[in-house]
């Protein structure tokens, strides 16, 4: 393991920001920490960087315990959400900042400047750079000293939406080419799923689930994990004779009879059909590549249907709906 965290805890006053978090990151791996704000993901990043220290647990890098090592001696790169480019230094001097004690500092800086294609920016001061350019310079600065691990805190959140996807892809390509080991923090589920080799979902200071993107998306281990990555339709029910009743018919549930459960149904798993559950179209919203339709079921509840197909439904129109069983998940009701 390049980087290993073992049962790390951190407390701020009355708030347990992290409790018993363990995590390993392999060489060249890109790990995405994701979760709602306040879940502890940024705290974890700060602990790895050494700008904060854990109350308990150990952090090791390349097999060396660095829990008590000050940040300047860790060889960890850190890219901040606000980029934290030093305003009194030119882009080049920002990049050279971490190379002070290197004999070949200029060559190393030139190398990273060339790799990132920012040669035309290096003479400028940070306030003369656009958001995307600042992001590039910040990345170059963090990578220039060739850190063992690169930490990125919401690296794309300050960018315009139109730029974001492109810059993200480019950045990830560069990181891959450099074989950099990366721990990245984001609050955006889609970004987490698309950026990381591995996704670590956190909640209230604990790791909820970790795994490849498709694992956590397709096989969430809890209603929370499921709900974080996908905007499910939800029905509550009780298991009777091995199944739970839903508007779309009984669904087999692996829980004891009498257990209160929640049935989660992906909006993509619903589709109009000739027969099935009767519903009326409440609204149709075009969201770009996909279309979202809100429908009121004849039996009462409202559901959402998402599809990349244009169904051509009109408000007030009556339809029948069917659900694809592959898009259904069942969790105990109390496991919120």
């Amino acid at each position: 393991m390049e980087l290993a965290l073992d049962r790390v805890s951190r407390r701020f006053g009355g708030v347990q920001a992290l409790s018993d978090v363990s995590l390993g990151v392999g060489r060249g791996e890109v790990v995405c920490l994701v979760g709602p704000s306040g879940c502890g993901k940024s705290t974890l990043l700060r602990l790895i960087a050494g700008v904060d220290r854990p109350d308990a647990g150990t952090i090791s890098l390349l097999g060396r315990d660095i829990t008590r090592v000050p940040p300047e001696d860790r060889h960890v790169g850190f890219m901040f959400q606000d980029y934290a480019l030093f305003p009194h230094l030119s882009a080049r001097d920002n990049i050279l900042f971490g190379l002070r004690r290197r004999a070949n500092a200029d060559a190393m800086a030139e190398e990273i400047i060339r790799r990132l294609g920012i040669g035309h920016l290096v003479g400028r001061f940070p306030h003369m750079l656009s958001g995307g350019e600042q992001q590039r310079v910040a990345l170059a600065r963090a990578l220039a000293p060739r850190p063992h691990v690169l930490l990125m805190d919401e690296p794309f959140s300050n960018l315009d939406r139109t730029l974001r996807d492109g810059i993200r892809e480019e950045t990830l390509a560069i990181l891959a080419a450099l074989e950099a080991t990366v721990v990245m923090v984001t609050h955006d589920p889609e970004e987490a799923l698309s950026s990381g080799d591995r996704v670590v979902l956190m909640r209230a200071g604990r790791v909820v689930q970790a795994g490849r993107g498709e694992d956590v998306y397709d096989r969430p281990e809890s209603a929370y994990a499921a709900g974080f990555f996908c905007d499910f339709n939800r029905f509550d029910g009780v298991v009777e004779r091995g199944a739970v009743a839903t508007p779309f018919g009984p669904i087999t549930a692996g829980f004891a009879d009498g257990t209160a459960v929640q049935v989660l149904l992906r909006p993509q798993a619903l589709h109009p059909a000739d027969t099935g559950t009767a519903a009326t179209v409440a609204s149709v919203t075009l969201m770009g590549e996909i279309e979202q339709t809100r429908l009121r079921l004849a039996c009462g509840p409202e559901v959402r249907l998402r599809s990349s197909r244009r169904h051509g439904l009109r408000q007030g129109e009556g339809v029948f709906l069917r659900a694809d069983p592959a898009g259904v998940l069942i969790f105990p009701a109390d496991a919120a």
Partner: peptide, 26 residues
């Protein structure tokens, strides 16, 4: 911003170097 301190520290400057290169000029 504290992120300047942290950036400088993670780029290899100790507290004193960070003070000299970041806080003093700024």
């Amino acid at each position: 911003p504290p992120s300047y301190d942290h950036a400088s520290r993670s780029l290899g400057q100790g507290p004193t170097g960070t003070f000299r290169r970041i806080h003093l000029p700024l």
